[in-house]
């Protein structure tokens, strides 16, 4: 039980009076990549935000490496080693990429963690090399995505929360991203909780899959198990199929 990097138990979340998550139980083990799937509005982003402590009111228990974090503020949770990569990227536009990274580096040092150097980051995300001195507003979508991931990695977090990283990216970039991300746990010891709708990306990257439907957990199991069942995919991911035809 205690080697879960992240453990959610009975988590409920509300936006105002509207409940978005119902009794969610979820775990991520050390060194794992776990995917969270579901339609738009199913609660994937809400789940990640609940872990991070952003916005929604929540109840239930959230534990990071056995320590409860559900009562902490956002910055405290970040400092404990949770990396946040939001779906809208959120680069600081007037800061250069180097400054974006520098921001986190200083904080990590004060936490006693040795931050990743630029060289190490380039190794993970080769694209970073030519971006390092560009200003935030001068980056394309794919480049922003890379920088956002790098920024979250700099402080060597225990777990990375990735929210729909492939959204809006060209397929060729998505492939490169899949390679980089799949290598992360091995090379840098970071676990990943990934919210995604892209089936093939999840297949290439994740070991386990949780599926949400209108705020409730409807499937939890190995990626292989989920990928082999078109019926499950259709039911929960709204994959459009005409009746009787199997599009694999």
């Amino acid at each position: 039980m205690s080697d879960h990097v992240l453990a959610l138990t009975g988590v409920n979340a509300w936006y105002g009076h509207a409940q978005a998550l119902f009794g969610l139980d979820l775990t991520v083990d050390a060194g794992q990549i776990v995917a969270l799937m579901g339609r738009n509005g199913a609660g994937k982003t809400t789940c990640l935000r609940s872990v991070m402590g952003i916005e929604a009111r929540r109840s239930g228990s959230v534990q990071l490496a056995g320590q409860p974090i559900e009562g902490l503020g956002v910055e405290a949770i970040a400092r404990r080693g949770v990396g946040w990569v939001p779906d809208d990227r959120r680069i600081f536009p007037t800061l250069t990429v180097r400054e974006n990274l520098q921001l986190v580096r200083g904080i990590a040092k004060r936490q006693g963690r040795q931050p990743m150097s630029v060289a190490e980051l380039v190794e993970v995300l080769p694209i970073m090399e030519r971006l390092i001195d560009r200003k935030g507003h001068a980056l394309s979508g794919g480049e922003q995505q890379a920088v956002t991931i790098a920024r979250a990695l700099v402080g060597r977090p225990q777990i990375l929360l990735l929210d729909e990283p492939t959204e809006g990216l060209a397929p060729v970039i998505v492939q490169g991203l899949a390679q980089s991300i799949a290598a992360l746990p091995e090379r840098h010891g970071v676990s990943i909780l990934l919210a995604e709708q892209n089936l093939s990306f999840v297949r290439d990257v994740a070991e386990r899959v949780y599926v949400l439907d209108i705020g409730r957990l409807v499937f939890a199991g190995d990626t292989a198990e989920f990928m082999e069942s078109p019926e499950l995919q259709e039911r929960y991911l709204a994959v459009a199929r005409s009746s009787g035809t199997n599009h694999g």
């Binding site: 910055e75 600081f92 800061l95 921001l103 986190v104």
Partner: peptide, 23 residues
């Protein structure tokens, strides 16, 4: 460094906090 944090919080308070900046 402080100026960088100030500018970050000015642009996007939530993300700055999510990076550990004590907004």
């Amino acid at each position: 460094g402080l100026g960088m944090k100030i500018r970050a919080v000015a642009h996007d308070r939530t993300t700055a906090r999510a990076l550990g900046v004590r907004a």
